Structure formats: structure tokens, C-alpha cells
Simulated assay, not measured.
Amino acid sequence: MFFRDRRDAGRQLAARLGHLKGTEVVVLGLPRGGVPVAAEVAEALGAPLDVCLVRKLGVPFQPELGMGAIGEGGVRVINDDVVRTARVAPDELTRVEAREGEVLENRARRYRGGREPVGTEGRTVVVVDDGVATGSTARAACRIARARGAARIVLAVPVAPHDWASRLGGDADELVCPHTPWDFSAIGQFYSGFFQTGDDEVVACLE
């Protein structure tokens, strides 16, 4: 185990991001599990915190396996290898996208409560999640930040597979991850407490 919980992971991650302190930084957490991690990073950097709304597109018969992701502003990332290997039909992909799109809209209303997103134009944006597995969600988040005018994007996660850099392509300008184990099967295996983050906790972090 590397982390007691997401707050502990956020503090460990923040220790690797000290070079960003004092710059024009915005921290974006991926709901739901990434937000408590991001809250610790934002506090350490003295930076504003917001959510980056992204939804994983899970394979219909194995929802934990991501075949892509969608995000705010119509951002869409599809992992063709997973779609092909899992033999997901186009109409199945369309149904999953429609369902997750509804969740995305509902969460935007719930988390922001009518507030405008924090401005990212011309700033360094630190995209934070509680870990990376396939990388689809993280890539979509980076693309959202880019579309919103970020000058520089730093993707920061507490744990990821050893080959995570190759999975991310060029969607982030800088990658920060304290732990990149070879024996990676799921993010939760590296946390003592990896309980589901509730909507109320996300809202509390943002407030």
C-alpha cells in the first residue's frame, strides 16, 4: 500500500508539485475520486480548485474496463483497441455515451450549483485524479483543459502503471506521478482505504 486514503495521496502528490507554487495555477479534480486528492494539491499550491467533468465509457459487460471517455464541451476519446478487443458494437457504444452524457450534465449542475467554471485561459492547469489505469479519462480531461485555453497542462496522479506515459500520448505537457509500479492491476490496490467518494464530499471540497 502506498496511501492511507485519497487525502494522504493528495498530500504525497502535492510534495512533488512544489515547483508550481507561486505561478498562475488552477487545479482541476476529476469527479468523484480525484476531487479529494485535488483539494489537497490546491491547498498546498494556494490555487483555486474546480472539477473537470469527465465520464468513463465502460465496456457494457465489464463497466470497470474503460473503452473511452467523454467530457465537457463535447470532448470524446475512444480507445479503439479496447472497443475492438471487447467486440463492442457501434450501437452499444452510442447507448453508453448517451447514458454517461446524462450523468455528466446532472453532475455539472450538482457540483457547480450554477457557478461558472474557474477560468483557465492562459494559465497552468494541473489535472488531478486518484490514479490512472487505461488513461482514457485523463486524456479527455487534458483535452478539455486545452480547449478552455490552458497555456500548460500538468497531469498529476498518485499512482499509475509503469508505462503510463506512453498511454497518455501528447495530451499533457508534464506528467507527475510518485508511484509507477509494474504489478499494476487496479488503482484501489494501492490504497488502504479506497471507498467510493460521494457527491456531498465533492461539493464540500469545492466549497
Rank of each mutant, 00 (worst) to 15 (best):
G74D: 08
R4D: 13
E40D: 01
V77S: 10
V96Q: 03
R6E: 13
T85E: 15
R112E: 09
D173N: 12
R6I: 06
E102G: 01
V83A: 09
L175M: 09
G66M: 07
A108L: 14
D8Y: 03
R110W: 12
L45T: 03
V83E: 12
G66A: 15
G198D: 15
V118T: 11
R99W: 04
L13T: 02
P36D: 08
G149I: 01
P63I: 02
A151T: 02
V159R: 03
R76F: 06
D5S: 05
G46C: 01
R110Q: 15
N79Q: 06
V27A: 06
N106V: 03
A47T: 00
Y111E: 14
V51H: 10
A165N: 06
V37C: 09
L93R: 04
A86C: 14
R107K: 14
R139D: 03
D173I: 09
R112T: 08
V51G: 11
D199H: 09
R110N: 13
R4K: 13
A108G: 15
V203E: 15
R107Q: 11
P158H: 08
G46L: 05
F61W: 10
I144W: 04
L168C: 04
M67K: 03
R76N: 06
E174N: 01
L53C: 11
R99Q: 14
A186F: 08
G188L: 08
E92C: 04
P158S: 05
V118S: 05
E43Y: 00
K56D: 12
A47C: 10
V127F: 01
W164A: 14
G114Q: 11
D80F: 09
G58D: 10
D183H: 11
R16C: 11
L175A: 02
G34T: 04
F190N: 03
W164K: 02
P60H: 00
G46H: 01
T85D: 14
V118K: 13
D80N: 14
R7K: 11
A204G: 09
P161R: 02
T85K: 13
A44W: 03
E97C: 04
G29Y: 02
D200Q: 14
I153R: 01
D129S: 11
R139L: 10
P161V: 05
L49V: 04
Q196N: 03
R6K: 06
V54I: 15
E201T: 11
G46Y: 02
L65I: 09
A141S: 14
A141I: 13
F2K: 12
V75L: 02
A204K: 14
P60V: 04
D8L: 04
D163S: 07
M1I: 13
G58Y: 02
A145H: 00
G33C: 14
V82C: 12
V59I: 12
V202Y: 08
V25G: 04
Q196A: 12
R107P: 14
G34I: 00
T197V: 15
V25R: 10
I70P: 09
R11L: 12
V154F: 00
D8W: 07
G74R: 02
A89N: 01
V54E: 15
T180Q: 14
I187P: 02
L17W: 05
H179I: 06
G114H: 11
G10V: 00
L155I: 07
L65V: 10
V132I: 15
A98T: 13
A86R: 12
E102F: 00
T85Q: 15
L57I: 07
G101L: 00
G33S: 09
L175Q: 07
A141V: 11
R84C: 10
P60R: 02
S136C: 15
R7C: 03
E102W: 00
V54G: 15
